[in-house]
Structure formats: C-alpha cells, structure tokens
Design a protein around this nucleic acid. Structure first.
Lengths: 158, 158
DNA sequence: TATTGTTATACTCTATAACTATA
DNA sequence: TATAGTTATAGAGTATAACAATA
C-alpha cells in the first residue's frame, strides 16, 4: 500500500485461494488415483466414459480438455491395460467409438463410489449453505474467465 | 435421487465448479504465459524468485510444489535462457542460491504488472464482497483438503 | 473441402532412486 | 547420519504439423 501499483490486485487473495484449493484437491485426488495405477488423464477418461454407451475421441477430448494428439496416446495406454475398447463408429466412418471394456466398467464401478465416499467424508464439515455459496461464486468467476477465452483476438496490445 | 448412492454427492456441484473455475483460470493464464515463451512451471519459478534476494532449491520446491529432481530440470532450462543464476549459498555449503539474473528481473518486472492488469480487467465485474466471500469459502475448503494430506497413514482401509 | 483420428517430432514435467558433497 | 542438490532413467502429457480415410 505504498508501492506503485494502483488497486490492481484486489482479486489476488481470492485467486490465490482458488489455486491453492485446487492444488489441495488435486493432491488428495491424484494420490488416490495413482494408488489405482492410473494417471489423472487416464482417470478423467475412465470417468468420462463411465455410464455411457461410448463416445468419440472428439467428445472425450472436449470433455477432458485434451487435444486429439494427446488423447490418442492416453487411449493407447488405456487400451494396453485392457480398460477400454475402440470400435468403428456406427454412424460415421471417420470416427471411433471408445467404450469401457468389461474390466474398465468394473473398475469404474469399483472405484467411483469409493472415491466419492472418500471425498464426502472430507467435505462433511461444510454445510450445504456453504457449498452452495461456494458453487455460485465459483460459477460467476468461471464465466468471467471463460468469457475471456472467447475473445481470442482483441487482445491486450492496442 | 433414485439410485443406490445415499447423500454421498452433495459436494459434487461445488467441487465440479472448483475444477472448472481453476481450469478456466489456467487456460487464461497459461495462454498468456506461453506467449512469453515460458512454461507454467518456469513462470512459477520466476514469480517465486521475483522481489527476493534469492532462494534455495528447497525453498523454491516448497513454494511451487515441485520435487527437487523436477526443479533441477526447470532451473537448467531457465539458466539456459539466461533468466536465472545459480550461486553458492553463503550460509550452507550444500545449498545453492538461485536468483533472477538482470534479464530475468527485467522480465519479471515487465510481465508481472501486465499479467496483473490483464487479470484485474477480467475481475472487474466481481465486487469486493464477492471476492472476499469466495476467498473465505475457498480457504475453508482448502483447510479441509489439506487436513487430509496430513493424515498420510490412517487411510480408508479399516 | 472439411473433419476424424493417427502418426511423428521434439520438448517438458513426473516420479524414483542412486549419487556427491557438505553438515 | 542427515540434508541439498544433481544425475539418470523410464514414463507420460503437450503442442504442432503432416497424413490417410471418410464425409
């Protein structure tokens, strides 16, 4: 408060907490995921495919934020582990239908409830009102940040 | 609400928003960082070293959540770019004092205000009250999650 | 001509462990 | 004996571009 910057930093405490909270969650979550012999990306794919009839690579990439080149590698490794299958897409000859294999489906149903129950225990101290408020504020924040992504071209320069 | 799981998922909407808000921020932030020719890890180190007299690898690792083996590689690349310097630590012969080079310091002072101003513009729609509430809720969440990390041993099993 | 997914390349981060040199 | 940092290794994600098959 005696420096050169104006009021340019009022958002920093909240932003720092966002990053730290996410990192804390990521630490808890990825510890659990790694104990299953999976990476975060692999788990994301399993979770995305769970309870579906199968998805195209494009769909999976959209949901997991992976570009197609990356996804191919992740799917290769999941296929090698026998957790997914690739089949020709019935409606589009260019596309691939990616599905959980029986093993993958069993894994999904074995680990997901456990994962959720584990997290639920952690979240017990937070009231519904707190969770709801948190959700709404985070949603507002996200919309602001995503609005920026849309404006890909009119950037900072001028 | 007609499935097998109990109330095991009341936290999921908030958690999903946490992840999505973080991903949105990460998208905005890393777009800016990559445009500077840096990776997120490299930027983290630059930001950590900014406005300090230099830090040990241990300190940097603690703040950026990188293990020492990873950090060595990141520091190597920053050193090759001429952005940091490694000097023997004056107080401990085993340790290294990592500092921003003049070039790195210039970069830090050139990009940090820009980065903050850029974010400040994005955050303009949020009121101080909203930011404050968000910060407090995130802090509560983080403490819950970090409490878990401490209990490394009495895990889910029994 | 546009889209889907794969391949290829080069880089970076991750995790782990062995190693050195200091303390 | 413990700590700080480097080195070595193997594996995995990232970004980008070129490519084949299909629409």
């Amino acid at each position: 408060m005696s420096t050169t910057e104006p009021s340019c930093t009022r958002f920093l405490p909240a932003l720092r907490e966002l990053v730290r909270a996410y990192q804390a969650f990521d630490g808890v979550s990825s510890k659990h995921i790694r104990s299953l012999g999976l990476t975060t990306s692999q788990f994301d794919v399993i979770a995305t495919l769970g309870n579906t009839e199968g998805l195209s690579c494009r769909d999976i990439g959209d949901k997991t934020l992976m570009v197609k080149g990356t996804l191919t590698g992740v799917l290769d490794r999941l296929e090698n582990k026998g957790l997914i299958r690739r089949a020709p897409h019935p409606e589009d000859g260019r596309s691939t239908l990616v599905q959980l294999s029986p093993t993958g489906d069993a894994l999904f149903h074995a680990i997901f409830p456990t994962h959720l129950a584990y997290l639920d225990k952690l979240f017990a101290p937070l009231t519904d009102a707190e969770l709801s408020a948190l959700q709404q504020h985070l949603n507002a924040l996200r919309q602001i940040l995503e609005r920026d992504r849309a404006e890909e071209d009119d950037d900072v320069s001028p």
